[in-house]
Design a protein around this nucleic acid. Structure first.
Lengths: 105, 105
DNA sequence: TCAATACGTCGGAATATTCCGACGCGTCAA
DNA sequence: TTGACGCGTCGGAATATTCCGACGTATTGA
């Protein structure tokens, strides 16, 4: 059983592109697949990964199944990244301190 | 040949943890490996992936090899995520508009 | 009712990832 | 000089990912 890891879901470029496309509104599977050099089953399986990561929501509409974007799990990635923007700013501050110290000595 | 994809590099929890640890300063390989339930070769191979994604830099120091964090490639992830914060704000704005319209009608 | 459409999923193949033990190389300290 | 240390990498095994064609199911429209 594959894990419902958001980071793992984003590791594949096709899945990232699917999420990009879904920003512009819900799409059916065949509709989505037509944009890739991929068969429909492959896209359907990518959607399953995205579903397990809760990055998309499905809305059955008749015989079609529209996939909606749910960007909320991306917050986990954002939070993780913040640890590094903090790191970055910290480094810059340390550099400032170092320069200031050098200046006053 | 594996791709130097930053997203793929972040897909593995061990690699993410390595980056976290490196925020607190450069570390040797054996030192890093002691923090995981993993052999040294495995950690060394994870470091190779991170190196190819330019997320770490190596500094040979005597017989040790210190790995430094380089957070710059993470900017790509941040930029990608921004597309979805924009999406999110857009949705909220659309909701505001809808509510405002309802209020004035 | 019946053919066409939209979809999920399965079996299987190709490939990638992840991990380990073993080996060899350079470096250190005695 | 020599044994121990730190490291990268290789061969190989176990497992995961990615993709396809084929099939079954449900829905639509004629």
């Amino acid at each position: 059983m594959p894990s419902p890891d958001v980071f793992a879901a984003l590791a594949n470029p096709v899945r990232r592109e699917i999420l990009m496309q879904l920003r512009q509104g819900p799409r059916g599977v065949t509709e989505l697949a037509s944009g890739f050099a991929l068969g429909r089953p492959a896209v359907s399986e990518h959607l399953q990964v995205l579903r397990k990561a809760h990055l998309v929501r499905e809305e059955p509409r008749g015989r079609e199944r529209y996939y909606h974007l749910d960007p909320r799990p991306l917050a986990e990635v954002e939070v993780w990244l913040e640890a590094f923007t903090r790191y970055w700013k910290q480094r810059l501050a340390a550099l400032d301190d170092l320069l200031a110290e050098k200046g006053t000595t």
